[in-house]
Design a protein around this nucleic acid. Structure first.
Lengths: 222, 222
DNA sequence: GCTGCGTCGGTGAGTTTGTCACAAAGCCGC
DNA sequence: GCGGCTTTGTGACAAACTCACCGACGCAGC
């Protein structure tokens, strides 16, 4: 029986791989730590590795020419940053970037080793395609929301999604607006309206949800 | 030297594969024809095959709960419908559907054979990931446009993108609106405005571009 | 031809969202 | 307390979406 490096425990999708492949993986994978705020990939610095997140989160966002931004999705611990692998190979001119939102521990698999693993292991292929699938459905969801959903509902949903256990968010209205790909004023007004309804308290840099149930009710209106 | 089936000429990305893999591909690949309007995959009918388009086009669009729609991208001849392969494996509850926009000739590669090809051929893997890359950048572009671009510019761009050599489009305003994920009235008004400016002529079911250069100038404003 | 019917396009009114400009309030270092 | 910076608030306006409805067109059946 093999002794697995500890990071492997975070990736149940890799549990079924053969002993041979497991050894290859251990030999090729580098563990790294990234500071909060590190730009992992982006315009001008294409990704050269498949990234497996052991701890922390990575935020992937899109930049527009006009300087506006939108958060596309987040990669959490136990997940991989697969979309970049596709973009490893071809078009480097995509305008998305990945940023370490917290301090991050990650495992890096270089491009060539990634390819070898894809060749050798059915389980690894399944792992990769499943990750792709999740990201792509996330993107479809983003498109559906910005194209069709009302802003008040989107704000309510995002409040709940970003809320910690203490029901409090620590971010500026500007950053919240980027989450939704909209303008700061729109978010400010909407939050003010929620405050008038007694659903939350606003102060500089924090949003405290006082009535999450009402917010949830709005978020779940079809 | 092998004699390749004629469909292989459409896929330069597969030119470099080895003889062994080439034989496998020929043995496993089924050619089919699909009638215009056929739903290739969609809610309730997940894709079971990788699709390589030999001729015709496939339109992939998203349906919202409220009944609104948006065109995500098109697959043209010489391209493959790879995003569905990811979704082969996992989440079946995505609300996108693929429709044969014209009569279509396609080559089908069943899931298991797809997996075997991924295992055997570096070139096949490169082909698949390049296709992924293109689709994903397409999706990023869609997000950028619906989130940040003005409607008049998007209408102008779409007119040029859908224009045939005869500078004429044959579709209803409703269908044009679905291309952009917006409402029919918005498109109708915008087209009417373009007609007032003398850029095009409208009649029931057709749009005739009389001044494509002006339209292009608008489409290219940053 | 004419009639009826379904589809397609046009339009006004009201709401929501985005843009712009600027003011007010909070925070920090001095 | 005082400047300087960041964050939030707000009014006015423009753009986009929604809703309701009507008229115009095209076609099948008479």
């Amino acid at each position: 029986m093999l002794t697995l490096p500890s990071w492997r425990a975070s990736f149940p999708g890799l549990a079924g791989i053969s002993e041979q492949v497991s050894r290859l993986l251990d030999r090729k994978a580098h563990t790294t730590k990234l500071r909060q705020g590190t730009v992992i990939f982006g315009p001008g610095s294409p990704a050269e590795n498949l990234l497996l997140l052991v701890s922390g989160t990575v935020r992937v966002q899109q930049l527009s020419e006009a300087g506006r931004e939108i958060v596309l999705y987040r990669v959490h611990s136990g997940e991989s940053c697969v979309l970049t692998t596709a973009c490893l190979l071809a078009f480097e001119d995509y305008s998305a970037e990945g940023i370490a939102e917290t301090d991050v521990e990650a495992v890096l698999i270089p491009r060539d080793d990634f390819d070898e693993l894809m060749s050798l292991s059915k389980e690894f292929r399944a792992f990769v395609f499943e990750a792709y699938s999740k990201r792509i459905t996330d993107l479809f969801l983003v498109i559906e929301e910005i194209a069709f959903k009302r802003m008040d509902i989107r704000v309510a949903q995002k409040l709940l999604a970003l809320m910690g256990d203490d029901k409090t968010l620590h971010l500026t209205h500007q950053k919240f607006a980027i989450e939704l790909g909209t303008a700061r004023e729109v978010v400010s007004r909407q939050l003010k309206e929620f405050e008038r309804r007694g659903w939350l308290n606003l102060s500089r840099g924090t949003i405290e949800l006082t009535d999450p149930n009402s917010i949830r009710r709005l978020a779940e209106t079809p």
